[in-house]
């Protein structure tokens, strides 16, 4: 069945709980109301002719501008070789979606990952806990407003960069020498305007012969 036919059949069954096929650029999807998602999924799996037995992916997208977290279901049917994309919009303040674990077992771990990274609460899930991050992690990293906590259990998340500091310090010393040379040249020019052209030439040449700049201290420990 094509995507249009599937969408029509869903519309006939569920009325306005199921939106129309999207017209955006790229792949097309169907938006479903949050309350009806389990029924729609169960219908798609069991109805002869649809038989969406394969849950390819469940993922989420955070839209702070629209104040929703979209949960996206990529469904496929191995028997009929057709696919469909469903989208559900969960309120961003307290995102909660019913679990489709009863329809496809693949959803168990996929929903756990969305809970871990986005904070979406899947009501009815058998084992909703963090899966990728440590159990005592604070925050939901894939949200757009996530701020890092500055480390974990005392391990910092910055790193000293001695080469960058060395380069900066060397630049400063070089600038200081150039400034001295320019000041000396200006003084010589003020004293004797005519031979200034000759005298100022060796001055910059003598400056780099000055004792090499002391090695600046870095944060590197021996």
């Amino acid at each position: 069945m094509t995507q249009e036919e599937l969408c029509t059949q869903l519309g006939a069954q569920f009325g306005d709980a199921v939106g129309a096929l999207s017209e955006t650029k790229g792949d097309r999807f169907v938006t479903v109301k949050v309350e009806k998602i389990v029924e729609v999924c169960a219908y798609l799996k069991t109805t002869v002719g649809c038989e969406f037995d394969f849950c390819r992916d469940i993922t989420a997208v955070d839209w702070p501008a629209r104040k929703v977290i979209e949960v996206v279901y990529h469904l496929y049917s191995v028997t009929h070789r057709h696919g469909l994309v469903l989208k559900v919009e969960a309120n961003r303040e307290a995102p909660a979606v019913a679990t489709v674990e009863g329809v496809w077992k693949a959803a168990t771990w996929l929903e756990r990952e969305i809970y871990d990274l986005f904070g979406v609460n899947f009501t009815g899930h058998s084992d909703l806990r963090r899966i990728l991050l440590p159990d005592d992690w604070v925050g939901y990293p894939l949200r757009k407003d996530y701020q890092e906590a500055g480390g974990y259990h005392g391990i910092g998340n910055t790193r000293p960069e001695p080469l960058v500091q060395l380069a900066k310090a060397t630049d400063e010393v070089r600038k200081a020498i150039a400034a001295e040379a320019a000041a000396a040249a200006a003084a010589a020019a003020a004293a004797a305007p005519a031979p200034a052209v000759v005298e100022s030439a060796p001055a910059p040449a003598a400056a780099p012969a000055a004792p090499a700049p002391a090695a600046p201290s870095t944060e590197r420990k021996p």
Binding site: G151, G156, T158, R159, E219, R220, K221
Partner: peptide
């Protein structure tokens, strides 16, 4: 060259403050 075998080699200022 190693004074204390259990000390980490690089500690940033932020980690020292912890």
């Amino acid at each position: 060259g190693r004074k204390d075998p259990n000390a980490p080699m690089m500690i940033s200022a932020a980690d020292k403050a912890k």
